[in-house]
Write a protein that binds this DNA or RNA. Structure first.
Ligand SMILES: [Mn+2]
Ligand SMILES: [Mn+2]
Ligand SMILES: [Zn+2]
Ligand SMILES: [Zn+2]
Lengths: 124, 124
DNA sequence: TACGAACTTGGACGTGATCCAAGGTCCTCC
DNA sequence: GGAGGACCTTGGATCACGTCCAAGTTCGTA
């Protein structure tokens, strides 16, 4: 556990957000000025392998890193400004895929992304 | 309607597949040797705007172009080899998001991606 | 035939991510 | 304390994918 890794972990800890690697880097630099982008990428990659942080790809821009890894959830994304909310749809989407639609796959995961316009963007 | 556009449309027509722009280009070149990548990108972009073709982003690699634009469906993806199947889960995932989980958004779309291991990759 | 709109082309450019060789830190063993 | 080595960090090079752009081409119309 180096100072660099601690800082990256701190940036993500507790905050219920979805930051890009560059945003994590910017916040890390505020605490440890000389931390490099490469180290931020390395550390984020390790946290993802450890299951402490999730990668979220709601658009084709930068990946976002989600520290809310222990409570399963899905995402609601504003198509205009990119704002992201954690959501918990009812039911179990996995159970909604009949065997006849599984083509022999061993299905292990399902990811649901809702899209729409957020209140801010609706007002503007 | 130029020869180039016709060829791109032909490559996608009828086939129930999910090709990358490069794969479309490769197949187009087989029919019209001097078609350029730029034109393939332009034409795919137009087909997407017209609603004739869907963009599918199941991973962070190249976008895939899906001519099955008229029947709503979701995708089942092999985490190992990337194979993609069209699937039709039961129920309406949109209806499963309670108002209390919408945060004032106007929700217009939902995208469901199942992940697992395909029979080929399970065998190997 | 002359003109102009629309299309095509190859290559330059942009973004996000990964790779890599060099240098630094720190623990262990003598 | 000093040498050795494992592991980490760094900046810049490189990569993949996509977009942009200026120049050239095609083709319908007058
Ligand atoms: Mn989240
Ligand atoms: Mn499809
Ligand atoms: Zn918004
Ligand atoms: Zn597979």
């Amino acid at each position: 556990m180096t100072a660099q890794r601690r800082v990256v972990a701190e940036v993500l800890d507790g905050e219920h957000v979805h930051l890009t690697a560059d945003e994590v880097h910017a916040r890390a630099v505020a605490k440890l000025p000389e931390i490099s982008r490469a180290t931020v990428y390395n550390t984020l990659g390790e946290l993802v392998s450890l299951g402490e942080v999730l990668e979220v790809s709601t658009d084709r821009r930068a990946k976002r890193y989600d520290p809310n890894a222990h409570q399963p959830h899905h995402h609601l994304v504003c198509a205009r400004c990119g704002a992201i909310k954690d959501v918990h749809p009812m039911g179990n989407p996995m159970a909604d895929l009949p065997d006849s639609e599984r083509f022999g796959f061993t299905v292990s995961d399902v990811e649901v992304t809702y899209r729409g316009i957020c209140p801010n963007c609706t007002a503007a």
